[in-house]
């Protein structure tokens, strides 16, 4: 799974700490998701999607093999 979190953070001028606060998770969690080492739960994916005002599948991009 690829994520566009880093790109969207840059677009909205958010650092990891601020995004973590808004998504109600730790910065470590954001960092893991951003480095594609953790697939977030649905609730966190929804929160991130609302923060960036983007659909979930526009932030978390699944390859054919993942599905």
């Amino acid at each position: 799974m690829r994520t566009r979190i880093k790109e969207l953070r840059a677009r909205d001028q958010l650092n990891q700490t601020e995004l973590a606060k808004r998504a109600k998770v730790s910065r470590q969690t954001i960092s893991l998701i951003e480095r594609e080492e953790l697939v977030p739960s649905l609730i966190i994916a929804v929160r991130i999607s609302k923060i960036f005002n983007e659909p979930i599948d526009n932030i978390f991009i699944f390859e054919e093999d993942d599905l």
Binding site: S26, Q28, T29
Partner: peptide, 9 residues
């Protein structure tokens, strides 16, 4: 009190 990322670590 830990979230899913911290638990993963």
């Amino acid at each position: 009190a830990s979230d899913e990322g911290e638990r993963h670590i």
